[in-house]
C-alpha cells in the first residue's frame, strides 16, 4: 500500500480516502438504481408493484412478465409481444453495421495512404455529417425512400443507417490508419502491390482493434436509434426501440409495469451484452468519438 501511494503523484490523507470511497460508492448506487428497480420489478407479479415498494425484492418471483413482453403483450394494436421487433432490429443492425464498417475501413485507408488534393476537406465534410441534427434530413429522406420503393422496409432502414454511419466509421479507421507507417505501404507499392492487395495483406491484418471499436460503436448507435425507426419503419419493419415505446404507451387496459420493465431490459440486453463482453473497447470507441487523431 505504502509503495503504491508513493507512486501516486497526488497524495491524499486517509480521512480524505474514506470520503472519496463514500462519494464513489454513492454515485455507483445512483447509476445502478434504475437497473435494479427495472430488474426486480420485472420479476414481480403486477399486484405487488401497484402500491408496493419499488425497492423491495419480489415476494413471489415470476418470469410471467418476461414471457408476456416477449410473445403476447400488446404492442400498438397487435398482441404480438416484442419478438417480431427484436428480429426486425437484428435484421437491420447486422447488414448496416457490416456495410458501414467495411466502407469506413476502405475510406480510412484511402484518406491516409492514397492521399490526394482536397482529401482533408472531404474528410471534414464526412465528419460534419456525423454531427448534423437528423431532423434536417427527415423530410427528403422520407421522399427518397418512397421513390426507391423501400419506404417502411428493413432495407430502407439499412440504407439510412449505412449512409449516416459512414462518417463515424471513416473517422475511426482514418485516425487509426494515420499512425500506421506509410513507408510500409510505399514499399509494397514499389514492389508492385496494388490498391486491394495492400489493403488485404497489410492493412486488414492490423485492423482488429479498430474494427472492434467501430463495430461496437455502430451496433450501439443503430440498435438504440429511435428517430429513424419511428420515421421510416412503418409497422412491418419497426425496430425494438420504437416497439418498446409503443408497448409502454399502449393505452388499452391496465398498465402492466412489470411487462414494460421486462421489455425495456430486452431492448437493452444486446448492447449491454456487447458492453459487458467488450466494454474496454466501447470506452475506447467513445473516446475516439471526440475527433482526436
Amino acid at each position: 500500500m505504502s509503495v503504491a501511494s508513493q507512486d501516486t503523484a497526488v497524495k491524499t490523507g486517509s480521512i480524505a480516502k474514506v470520503f472519496i470511497y463514500l462519494i464513489l460508492v454513492l454515485f455507483a448506487l445512483f447509476y445502478l438504481l434504475p437497473l435494479y428497480v427495472m430488474l426486480t420489478n420485472s420479476l414481480k407479479p403486477l399486484s405487488e408493484i401497484t402500491g408496493g415498494d419499488m425497492m423491495s425484492l419480489p415476494k413471489a418471483w415470476t418470469i410471467e412478465a418476461w414471457l408476456s413482453a416477449w410473445s403476447t403483450a400488446q404492442v400498438g394494436v397487435s398482441p404480438t409481444g416484442l419478438r417480431p421487433y427484436f428480429i426486425n432490429s437484428i435484421l437491420m443492425v447486422v447488414p448496416a453495421v457490416a456495410i458501414s464498417t467495411v466502407l469506413g475501413a476502405l475510406n480510412g485507408y484511402i484518406l491516409t495512404k492514397w492521399r490526394f488534393r482536397g482529401d482533408t476537406l472531404l474528410f471534414g465534410l464526412m465528419l460534419f455529417a456525423c454531427f448534423i441534427p437528423f431532423q434536417i434530413v427527415l423530410i427528403p429522406m422520407a421522399r427518397i425512400l418512397g421513390i426507391l420503393g423501400i419506404a417502411g422496409s428493413t432495407q430502407g432502414l439499412v440504407l439510412v443507417h449505412v449512409v449516416y454511419g459512414i462518417g463515424f466509421s471513416t473517422l475511426y479507421f482514418r485516425n487509426y490508419y494515420a499512425s500506421f507507417p506509410t513507408e510500409l505501404v510505399r514499399a509494397a507499392m514499389i514492389d508492385g502491390a496494388g490498391f486491394f492487395r495492400i489493403f488485404w495483406r497489410i492493412m486488414l491484418p492490423v485492423s482488429g482493434p479498430i474494427a472492434v471499436v467501430t463495430i461496437i460503436w455502430q451496433f450501439t448507435n443503430i440498435w438504440n436509434d429511435f428517430l429513424f425507426g419511428a420515421s421510416f419503419a412503418g409497422l412491418s419493419a419497426m425496430p425494438m426501440t420504437v416497439a418498446l415505446n409503443n408497448l409502454v404507451n399502449s393505452s388499452t387496459g391496465v398498465r402492466e409495469y412489470n411487462v414494460h420493465f421486462a421489455g425495456a431490459i430486452m431492448a437493452a440486453l444486446p448492447t449491454l451484452l456487447v458492453y459487458i463482453v467488450a466494454g474496454r473497447f466501447f470506452v475506447r470507441g467513445l473516446m475516439a468519438g471526440s475527433v482526436k487523431g
Partner: peptide, 20 residues
C-alpha cells in the same frame, strides 16, 4: 458501473426514469 448507461437506448432510460 459509471459507464454502462451510455450503452442503453434513451427509450430504455426514459422508461426507467418515468416510472422512478
Amino acid at each position: 458501473i459509471y459507464l454502462y448507461p451510455m450503452a442503453l437506448s434513451f427509450i430504455v432510460t426514459g422508461t426507467a426514469w418515468k416510472w422512478f
